[in-house]
């Protein structure tokens, strides 16, 4: 089994309400150095050995991310 790790985040310019709320909350807690918070999703995907990354990319494009609003990054995490 092989494992991929997928990070889904909002595309640049898309307002992220939970991120903006966390950003204000941290600033209110006194962390004045906080400039931006972005909150996204982390997905662990376990697939059969030898599954090409292109296949995982297709899964992201079709279901796991919405290209209209989101970007994603795929990392190979090796053996599951």
């Amino acid at each position: 089994m092989a494992r991929f790790e997928i990070y889904v985040t909002y595309r640049k310019g898309i307002f992220d309400p939970p991120g903006a709320t966390a950003e204000r909350a941290l600033q209110n807690l006194g962390y004045a150095e906080v400039e931006q918070v972005k909150i996204g999703k982390y997905i662990q995907l376990e697939v059969a050995d030898g599954t090409p990354e292109a296949r995982v990319r297709e899964m992201c494009d079709r279901l796991l991310a919405n290209p209209v609003i989101e970007d994603y990054r795929i990392e190979t995490a090796g053996e599951a």
Partner: peptide, 17 residues
């Protein structure tokens, strides 16, 4: 309908959460 690309754009979480 937006997810199916039958309509453009997307619907995000309400601004005020």
């Amino acid at each position: 309908l937006t997810e199916a690309h039958m309509l453009p754009g997307a619907l995000l979480r309400n601004r005020g959460l």
